[in-house]
Computed example of a mutant assay.
Amino acid sequence: MADLTDDQKRDFESAAFRRLLQHLDSRGDVQNIDLMNLAGFCRNCLANWYREAAEAEGVALSKDDSREIVYGMPYAEWQEKNQRPASDEQKAAFERNRPKH
């Protein structure tokens, strides 16, 4: 592995995270339940992890604020614009594969 400084690692990780958010933003057709069923995490998980990281550094961040950072808009707006009802198949897969985090 390349000899990266801690600052470089942080900067590259930050850039990768921003790219992930851009990618997810461009794929509003991909439902959170699909992400959960396939990968075991979704946009809400990312928002929770972001909030937890902020809180670990002493920065208070609300659930709504962290979701807006991840979704690029208020969560309710994203839901109205993109979220579809989950199919019975999606719900069954979620129950079988429910992440434990």
Results as ranks from 00 to 15, higher is better:
E52K: 13
D65W: 00
G40S: 13
G72D: 06
M36H: 00
N48C: 10
R43S: 00
L61H: 01
K63T: 14
R43W: 02
Y50A: 09
W49H: 01
A39N: 12
A53K: 06
I69N: 00
G72F: 00
R43M: 00
A39F: 15
V70K: 05
V70Q: 04
D65S: 09
R51A: 11
A47S: 04
L35W: 12
R67N: 15
L38D: 11
L35T: 03
A39R: 04
F41Y: 15
Y50N: 06
I69R: 11
V59E: 15
D65Q: 15
C42D: 14
F41P: 10
R67D: 09
N37C: 12
N48K: 09
L35N: 01
R43E: 00
A39E: 03
L38T: 15
W49K: 07
V70Y: 06
A53L: 10
K63H: 12
C42H: 07
L38N: 12
S66H: 12
D34C: 04
I69T: 01
E55T: 01
S62A: 11
N37G: 07
R67Q: 11
G40P: 12
R43Y: 00
R51G: 03
E57F: 08
L38Y: 09
C45A: 04
A60P: 00
L46R: 03
A60G: 02
N44T: 12
N44S: 14
A53V: 03
A39T: 11
S66C: 04
L38E: 14
Y71G: 02
R67V: 04
A53Q: 13
E55D: 02
S62W: 07
Y50K: 13
Y71H: 07
M36L: 15
L61G: 05
D34P: 00
Y71I: 08
D34M: 12
G40I: 10
D64Q: 13
F41Q: 03
A60S: 14
L38A: 13
G40E: 10
L35S: 06
A60E: 13
D64S: 11
L46V: 06
V70R: 04
W49C: 07
S66V: 07
K63Q: 10
A54Q: 12
F41C: 05
Y50M: 13
G72C: 05
D34E: 15
R51F: 05
A47I: 03
E55N: 06
G72Q: 09
N44V: 07
K63W: 05
G72P: 03
V59F: 13
A56N: 11
N44Q: 02
N44A: 08
S66L: 08
G58L: 10
V59Q: 11
R43H: 01
E68H: 05
M73P: 06
G58W: 06
S62F: 07
A56W: 03
I69G: 01
E55I: 06
I69V: 11
D64E: 14
R51I: 06
E55A: 08
E57R: 10
S62Q: 09
A60L: 03
G72L: 12
E55K: 12
E68W: 01
W49S: 01
N44G: 04
G72K: 12
V70C: 08
L35G: 06
A39D: 06
V70M: 10
N48H: 12
A56R: 15
N48S: 14
N37M: 04
W49V: 02
F41A: 09
N37W: 10
K63P: 00
L61Q: 14
A47T: 02
